[in-house]
Every structure is written in C-alpha cells, then in structure tokens.
Amino acid sequence: MKKEMVNEATAPPESRLPEEEAMIEIVDMHKWFGDFHVLKGVDLTVKKQERIVICGPSGSGKSTLIRCINRLEEHQRGRIVVDGIELTNNLKNIERIRQEVGMVFQHFNLFPHLTILENLALGPIYVRKTPRKEAEELAMHFLEKVHIAEQALKYPGQLSGGQQQRVAIARSLCMSPKVMLFDEPTSALDPEMIKEVLDVMIDLAREGMTMIVVTHEMGFAKSVAHRVLFMDFGRIVEGNTPEEFFKNPKHERTKLFLSQILH
C-alpha cells in the first residue's frame, strides 16, 4: 500500500551519480541527552548530490543525527564538517552552515502569523539581505515549483497539511541550500497528502539536490535514494544501495525491522 504512494512511472529520477567530493563528513560523533547516550559514534560521509534515506525504529537517534548537522542539537564528541566548515561553538560558522543547510520538519513549523509569501521571503530578506521585491519574486518562483502559487497570500492555518509541507520545502529552497535535511516529512500527513509532498521531493532529487531524508516511505527510498541506512540504538547498523538493502539485509535487526515495516 505504502509503496504505491510514489508514482512509479514518474518516480525514478535520472540516476545522476553523486560526485566524489564530500558535502558532509561526520566522524565518530557522540551525543548525550543528560545521561542518555543517544548517538554512539556515528560515521557518515555524504557526497555532493548524494541522496540518503535513514530509517530505523523510533528512538534510534535518526532525527537527532540530522538535527546535529545544522546544530539544532549540539554534538559532544567527534567532528561534523559541512561543505568544508566544521561545526564548533563558533557562532559565525553555525550561521553559515544553517544558511547552506535547509531543513524540513515533521510538523512543518511554518510561521502562523505571516502569509505564505512572507514565510518564504523572510530568510532571503533578513539573512541574505535580498531587496524585498526580488525576495518576493524568488518566493513566487519556488511556490510555483511546489505547485501552490495561488495560495501565496493566505496564512498557514488556512492550508492543508500537504500544502503546508510543500510551503515548508519551498521556504527552505528560498535560501538556496546546498543540502536539504528532511525529518520525517510525511509522518504527520493524512495518507492522501503524502504523494504530493513526495512528488515535490522527487523533483528536487531530479535536480541533483544533496538530500538526507529520515522517512519510513520505503517506496520513496527504493526509487530515489542512492543509499539507505538503518539505525538502531544510536548507531548506523548497516547501509547499502536500496536494491541490496531491501533484498539482502545483513543484520538480524534490519531484517526484523523491514519485515515489520513492509508487512
């Protein structure tokens, strides 16, 4: 059932192979919440234009992992380097990385007091210092891209969940990010709205965006990802091309998880 959510006819993005240059490098990264060891030494290299899907049971640390990449969570050991900039306590670096890394949340997190257009133009105007008129043109461009331009003057509360999530994606794109992080982008959506959001993400993939997606949409993983990673108990248990990952999972834990999620 879930597999059919992705329209197989349009789905497979042109299989552009990732470049060799690394976009994100994570080395032996640890993270604790209080005494709780959430991430226990994660190593991950994401190449430019590579698309990675992360799956795993809840509490396995997959959301925390991608939230560390733009410093919504602070890692306590190891290194994270994004596009050549290392994440440290240096506020300048954090701001630079956040401008280059777009993030889409499970609950959209649009700004409810601003119109859709204002939501999109906010970053360009205040962070990139784009003149207001240009920023609004940019916003309209991306709204058209996610097929929602006619809603530009509405407020987020007046839109459906699927529409809100597409706006959230467009809002990130307005900052012309080099990487997009997706934190369970379809988990809070009604089933009939999942496809419209995944379609937008597939379009993005086709254009060669570097993407890390935490999701349980295995159809999406199969058709879009270069690599699928399985996380459990704060570690990356295994990672492979989608074909290998779904056909020949190596670890017992992965097999069990896949059997539960694919029925």
């Binding site: 701001e95 956040r98 890394v101 777009g102 970053g123 205040y126 307005c174």
Partner: peptide
C-alpha cells in the same frame, strides 16, 4: 527551530 534553520 524553523527560524534558526533558515539562518535567523
């Protein structure tokens, strides 16, 4: 988080 993630 949304505000921070667009670099504000």
């Amino acid at each position: 988080e949304a505000a921070e993630s667009i670099g504000l």
